[in-house]
Design a protein around this nucleic acid. Sequence first.
DNA 1: TCAATCGTTCGAGCGCGGTCGAAACGTCGT
DNA 2: ACGACGTTTCGACCGCGCTCGAACGATTGA
Lengths: 224, 224
Amino acid sequence: MREGPDIARIASLVGDPARANMLSALMGGTALTASELALEAGVSLPTASSHLGKLMEGGLLTLASQGRHRYYGLAGPQVAGMIEAITGVAAAVGPQRVRPGPRDAAMRVARVCYDHLAGEQAVAMLDRLVDRNLLVRDDKEIGLGPSAASHFAAIGIDVGARPRRPVCRACLDWSVRRSHLAGSLGAAILDKILAEKWARREKDSRAVIFSPPGKQAFERVFLA
Amino acid sequence: MREGPDIARIASLVGDPARANMLSALMGGTALTASELALEAGVSLPTASSHLGKLMEGGLLTLASQGRHRYYGLAGPQVAGMIEAITGVAAAVGPQRVRPGPRDAAMRVARVCYDHLAGEQAVAMLDRLVDRNLLVRDDKEIGLGPSAASHFAAIGIDVGARPRRPVCRACLDWSVRRSHLAGSLGAAILDKILAEKWARREKDSRAVIFSPPGKQAFERVFLA
DNA sequence: TCAATCGTTCGAGCGCGGTCGAAACGTCGT
DNA sequence: ACGACGTTTCGACCGCGCTCGAACGATTGA
């Protein structure tokens, strides 16, 4: 009998199919209402509410009440990272009769991870940004290079704009097994990609689909 | 209803207290027998056997039969990483009435992570090895510096000895939130620390306790 | 103030899965 | 060959927790 952090308690929260579906849905990064999550999980509203209560009590979710709507979101990057880690094991261990359908292929190329871009494109982007010395890596921590502020400002991203959270952060990619860029800069870049309509989000999925011209624009700006 | 990797299936495996205890025990890195794991989890032998069967079926464990003993071990680093991630969330989210007892403090300083050293000491060690250019970091991947082979050979570690797995690898530390050194070199260093009796393993725990002279020796060799 | 919508709480049903004792199986000592 | 030990299988018990319908609470807009 060993003690320490109660890992079973956390894991069992994720272990219920309905709750797992809710958490997966929230990995999209946008906070959702109880009704939306009930639909997503395929359970009735009372059942969903009960699950949400448990996830809240477990500290995995945050709640923002706006009028009669109550928006649930992931509690933070650490929780998102855990979900990614579990997803990675599930994907590695369970290719049992689950062929990698077209949607999975799209997910591998580019997808939303909490609030930033993940997948092959995102990993390649971070590599290039480091190569170009716009970012400098030191372990999980990523710093801004000397010319970062002016460079990003030129494409409409103010790296000093959001004080609250670290500007850059590494986040491990479950499909590529290497890091991609998280943090407020990662979030801002995803915002830009969607705002410029370089890519659109697949309905009911985390997949991000680039249009052909959008892909070129993205590569010109971030993979050059 | 979303599909994709069956995260609930994996999480629910970890979600049972008995199985969680077994997995935590296996995070010590050494493979254990069914009886030992039953004792560790506080359940009867038949119950433990049932749990082990499920963990095997889920792909989280490997099995090595040696005579009438059957040794169970974690299936790989990815599984170990997932456990660490869950542990991190549990530790962050559940400081509810669980004060950081003396054992926890020791765990934070140095502990075994699968097969290598983790904790503050391990994080500091990786930092220093990189500073001294004995190792070079590139994302999760860590390479050997130019003088690495001769340096480590001088202290009795052959970095080319184990072909199977990557020599170096970064592993995220749940207490410090930065990376420490995994891979065969990480394992070899832990072996040396224990072989030289610089430190001993706490009974029934992952904690690694340095003796005062052992700590000095360790710091002279790896933190100089 | 009343109706409409969103969400939670209550109560009861019920099935899945954890639990253990007893027995069967397999391997190793002598 | 036999007995001892480690492990798995079988069968039965039992309770936790998921589930939903119905009722209650909350917030908004007319």
